[in-house]
Computed example of a mutant assay.
Amino acid sequence: MKILVIKPVVSGKKLVKKLKKIGINSWNFSFFDFFPSNSSINLSNKINELYKSNIIVLFSKQSVYYTNLYLNTNNLKWPDSVKYFTIGKSTALFLYKYIKKKFFFLYTKIAKVC
């Protein structure tokens, strides 16, 4: 069996290393990676939209990390009045460290509440 891991570079390499350690041939191919933005089109230009949102969907721990970093740097908090959804349990657990409220995440085709 061969496995192609499609994750950002750092987490993909960690998973490949674990798989190879247990005898599963695998390699990582990253379609994307995460870095702080220096662009003029970034969260600072969209912050009002964040607070006007009804729903926020987070796709990765990195998106949670960098959003939280921006919010902390600017003395802002995660919006309270929105419904949060995440893709995956690890992203849900990571987000829970910051927002401490119930939210939904997709895991094994069933929406669960954290």
Rank of each mutant, 00 (worst) to 15 (best):
S11K: 12
K46P: 01
G12V: 04
S44R: 14
V64D: 08
S53L: 06
Y65V: 04
F32S: 15
K21Y: 06
S63Q: 09
P8L: 02
S44W: 05
N38D: 06
S40K: 14
I56L: 12
V57N: 01
V9I: 15
I24Q: 07
F32N: 11
F35W: 02
N45E: 11
P36G: 10
W27Y: 09
F59H: 07
V16S: 05
I3P: 05
F29M: 13
P8V: 03
I41F: 12
V57D: 01
F34Y: 13
S26G: 06
K13V: 14
Y70T: 12
K14R: 11
N54P: 01
V16M: 03
I22C: 12
D33R: 00
F59Q: 11
K17P: 01
N45K: 15
I6L: 02
V16P: 03
K13P: 00
Y70R: 12
I56A: 02
F34G: 14
I41C: 05
S37L: 13
N48A: 09
S60W: 04
Y66Q: 07
V5K: 06
L19R: 08
L58F: 13
D33I: 05
V9A: 08
N38H: 10
N25Q: 08
S63M: 07
E49R: 12
K46Y: 02
N74S: 05
K61I: 01
S37I: 14
L15F: 08
P8F: 00
S39P: 08
L43R: 09
L19E: 02
K52E: 11
K14V: 05
L4T: 15
Y65P: 09
F32C: 14
S30A: 14
F34E: 13
F32P: 06
Q62S: 15
S44P: 04
N68I: 04
S60N: 07
I3E: 00
F34R: 04
F29Q: 14
K7T: 01
S37Y: 11
S39Q: 08
S39I: 14
W27T: 15
S40A: 07
L71S: 06
P8Y: 00
G12C: 09
I56F: 02
I6T: 15
F32M: 12
K7Q: 12
N25L: 07
I24E: 04
P36T: 15
S37E: 09
S30V: 04
Y66K: 07
N68T: 12
N74W: 05
N74T: 15
Y70H: 10
N38S: 12
S11A: 05
F34D: 11
N68A: 09
K17L: 06
N42F: 06
S26V: 08
L4Q: 04
F35Q: 06
T67V: 11
I47H: 07
K61Y: 01
V9L: 10
T67M: 14
I55A: 00
F34V: 14
W27D: 14
N74G: 03
L15K: 05
L15G: 03
L43N: 07
E49T: 15
K46A: 10
N28M: 03
I6E: 00
S60Q: 09
I22A: 01
S11W: 04
K17V: 03
I24R: 05
V9G: 06
L69K: 13
V57E: 00
N48P: 03
P8D: 09
W27L: 13
I6G: 05
T73V: 10
V64E: 08
